[in-house]
Simulated scan of single mutants.
Amino acid sequence: IRVMEQYSTNLTDKQWQVIEKIINPQERKREHSLRNIMNAILYLLKTGCQWRMIPRNFAPWESVYYYFNK
């Protein structure tokens, strides 16, 4: 389990509650939480970092990239 650092791009609990209703994260078992993946996508979009430079406390870049493309 990765410890989630607090970045200014992280979703608030209230924001996550809205998104969670739309994407239904319980539809299947996942290795990484969708909230963690969404936070990584938001971090990447805000900072403009390269995919492989996403901080390690997020899900692996390959997983984040998969959901970004989806």
Rank of each mutant, 00 (worst) to 15 (best):
W51P: 01
K46Y: 11
E62Y: 13
N36A: 14
Q17C: 06
L42Q: 05
R28H: 14
R52N: 14
P60E: 01
M38T: 08
V3R: 11
K46R: 13
N57T: 13
F68I: 05
F58C: 01
V64C: 02
P60L: 03
V64S: 01
R52C: 02
K46Q: 14
R2T: 11
Q15L: 07
T9A: 08
Q26M: 06
A59W: 00
L45T: 11
Q6A: 14
N57F: 13
S8N: 11
M38F: 13
L45K: 15
K29V: 09
L34Q: 08
L42R: 13
C49G: 06
Y67T: 02
H32Y: 15
K70L: 10
F68D: 01
I41M: 10
K46T: 10
N57A: 14
Y65K: 11
L34A: 02
T47M: 06
K70V: 07
Q15C: 06
Y7F: 15
S8L: 06
H32V: 09
Y67L: 07
S63K: 09
R2Y: 06
T12A: 07
I41N: 05
S8P: 03
C49F: 03
A40K: 00
I41V: 15
A59P: 00
Y65L: 10
G48M: 01
I1H: 15
N57C: 15
K70N: 09
T12D: 05
R52M: 10
W61Y: 15
K21N: 08
P55V: 06
F68T: 12
V18G: 00
S8K: 14
W16C: 00
E27S: 13
I22G: 04
Q26C: 07
E20D: 08
E31M: 15
L34P: 00
E20A: 07
M53F: 09
L44F: 04
Q50C: 10
Y67K: 06
R56T: 13
I23A: 09
I23K: 06
F58D: 01
Y65Q: 08
L42D: 07
I23N: 08
T47H: 03
M53C: 12
R35D: 04
T9K: 05
N69P: 03
